[in-house]
Design a protein around this nucleic acid. Sequence first.
DNA 1: CGTTGGATTGATATCTGTCAAGCCCGGTGG
DNA 2: CCACCGGGCTTGACAGATATCAATCCAACG
Lengths: 248, 248
Amino acid sequence: MGNPIPTFPIRPPGSKAVACQNCSLNAFCLPKGLNRDELEQLEDSIQKNVKLGKKDYLFRRADPQNHIYAVKSGAIKTSLSTPEGEEQILGFFLPGDLLGFDAFANDAHTCDARALDDTLLCKLNVDDFNTLMGQLPNLRGQMMRKFGCEIEREQTLSLILGQMNTQARLATFLVSMSRRNQVRGFAPREFALPMPRHDLANYLGMAVETLSRLFSRFQEEGIISVALRQISINDMKRLNALAHHTCH
Amino acid sequence: MGNPIPTFPIRPPGSKAVACQNCSLNAFCLPKGLNRDELEQLEDSIQKNVKLGKKDYLFRRADPQNHIYAVKSGAIKTSLSTPEGEEQILGFFLPGDLLGFDAFANDAHTCDARALDDTLLCKLNVDDFNTLMGQLPNLRGQMMRKFGCEIEREQTLSLILGQMNTQARLATFLVSMSRRNQVRGFAPREFALPMPRHDLANYLGMAVETLSRLFSRFQEEGIISVALRQISINDMKRLNALAHHTCH
DNA sequence: CGTTGGATTGATATCTGTCAAGCCCGGTGG
DNA sequence: CCACCGGGCTTGACAGATATCAATCCAACG
């Protein structure tokens, strides 16, 4: 029979609103570390099961900040654009991830956020959020942690883009996707990428063709198997080694 | 006679402790937006005129987070390293800049911070800081703004590294240095870079030789004048144009 | 004045982007 | 049910930008 480890659900599993306390993602989300009472206060300000269709914008650059968002299912990409329209994708947000922090500098978003697929979100009004930050030290603590994570994420992207050759970039990305699945209790070696090649190539700062060749090469070398967006990692050790082989 | 706009002071101008309220940098620093009463509370937790010699570490990766820092004079660089020792410089912090936010994720720093020159800092204990965050909504607001700025900064670096060719990277950097000087009331077209070529090249994700050639070319074309770390911008318009000419 | 480390300049190699063609999968309509 | 698109993905040939290697050059400092 084997062990049917669930793979990552890309589509919304159901649409019934679930209390944070029963949400399978609460260990990664804002509620982490809150007691029942605090959770209740937080929950009053959260709007659940907000739907977004594939390619819909969650917010755009210069939009006023109204909410902080948590992904429940589906996936969101954020990106920054130059005046000329050149885009850099900054991150892919999966279930349990928070986004919207970019707007705290000027009460307006500095990047665009767009759904890669049909997506379900929870959203928290920023005014309520500010009030709660004053009242709930635990929430404040968790929020600061999330902020720190976001900064760490961005820093890692800079490290990838600034120091690694293309092969190390892809290897690093695959390892990180694997880990993200693992901590959520999903299969760490088999997963579907939520984004098209074009977006991934952009995120990793390379041409689509280069990315495609890398996938092919990794497959030839038996490190992974690729079928379009479906990935299985066959040799995690070597993948890790490639990920650490940084320099140009 | 001309107009002797002061250039950016790299060396500590004096070492007498100054109240935040009289500090020339307070418009960029945490005190922004606080009233006298709040300022006093904040000030009790701030340690002033902490000295750091050139090349001293302010903190290192995995160090427990004890403080948040504000640069008063001098300059700090932060960097991230791969397991193999490849380093990516993440930012240069000038007077008025805050740093230390990277540690909020796990109460431990994720990057290294090192003085580029003799440096004077103010430091704020994080425990006190957490308490104050609960008590002073205005401080919380300013802090969130600073957090947002930090995220924006990191995002911009990713955009630079991921989408721009080397010439656009350098141009963008010079424009940003110019702006940073300007908002602080210093000459926007004449300044000394606080970092050696090696560090700047690393930050911009290119080889030192490439950076050097770019400086030479910009000078040949009359856009800037370079004498080691001393820069003057002769043609801001063209520099801006180069900065916007992103793609590869 | 010699030494040392940073900065520049030149020659060459290599990686990765660009252009172009073809493939394959999924969807649509007859 | 099958044929035909169309878009995303892959593969190949080639060119160009940038890294690497090596040799000076220069400024700062003792």
